[in-house]
Design a protein around this nucleic acid. Sequence first.
DNA 1: CCAGGACGTAACGGTTGCGTTCCGCCGTTT
DNA 2: AAACGGCGGAACGCAACCGTTACGTCCTGG
Lengths: 188, 188
Amino acid sequence: MLRSDITVAIRDAVMHELAEVGYGRLSIEAVARRAGVGKTAIYRRWSNKLEMVLEIVSDVAGRSVPLPDTGSFAGDLQLIMMIVSRALQHRIASQIIPDLMAEAARNPQIAETLQKALRTHQQAVGEKLVGSAVTRGELPEGTDPDLAVDLILGPLYWRLAVSRTKPDGAYLEKLMAAVTAALRSTAN
Amino acid sequence: MLRSDITVAIRDAVMHELAEVGYGRLSIEAVARRAGVGKTAIYRRWSNKLEMVLEIVSDVAGRSVPLPDTGSFAGDLQLIMMIVSRALQHRIASQIIPDLMAEAARNPQIAETLQKALRTHQQAVGEKLVGSAVTRGELPEGTDPDLAVDLILGPLYWRLAVSRTKPDGAYLEKLMAAVTAALRSTAN
DNA sequence: CCAGGACGTAACGGTTGCGTTCCGCCGTTT
DNA sequence: AAACGGCGGAACGCAACCGTTACGTCCTGG
């Protein structure tokens, strides 16, 4: 039986190594060094770097956020923005996510895994959020859930993961108001 | 005198190599191979990989987009979105940009270069766009140009560079309408 | 008390890349 | 005609990693 404490140490090392050097430069030897583990222990678990990273990342990403339901669109929106901005300000996540996103553009396996782990869940959240809001009469019928997701995640991702300036509370409020107005307007 | 045709070949090879394998795995030997050039020719021009990439990338990124002024906010917005979505659908750009963005998160030199090449220009565009719209009375006074930039670039970047689904014309129109409504609402 | 298995360490041969050096070729300049 | 300089090519020593193997230790279950 493979020792679980060793497995945990490796998973942990992979995440940190991924954050520090990125997927492209991640080496099994460095992971082993960091985890305080022999290379053999790693190869006993996975047969190569890609498989290892995919398994570990999709596992972490799979522990996904529960669907929000606060009773009002404003509440749901605020909750989602809080959760996302928390996640994207996490030191490790904010390094790993853009790195893997970029890597996904050239590695179909990574793309597929990320897609499965993130996109699917996002769509579900978007549909739930918009659906409830529409039945509550807070958003016009025919509101596009995909557009909603883009409008919510896009600016946050851009600011937090790309231009990397910390948003204050006032910014988040403005953004919330703006997104709400944007979605309300899609009446036609 | 360094031969300019050789320099061009190298610059070209760097961009393509960057798109294919990313900064992390970019090797000078591969660049030389691709450019059909000796390594010596490269080292005669730059002293290492980082310096080379920074010089080339900032040069390309520096050829920046002119400030739009179509006479109306709707026109300006449409123009910007067209330009951005064109740029982000460009095969090479759409691979290089997210890759360098991710790399910037761990390399201050890259971050600074990208900041200088992109962020500064974006702010200028944002201020111009919002400023003109406000004086025309198309947007309320006090509209935040940074928020505007985030609302415009965020969703486009998210869709084109991250989730990588191709937007049709209808989507772009909806997005335009949504962004306009969002910014109009920031009256308070 | 013993067998099995997971472990760390060390070494293997092979590959890739670094940044440098030296060579001979060739077009310019003078 | 000769000197110069950029060029490609080849090789250098060095380092990092690959994926595999052999070995000795330690823990656990039977």
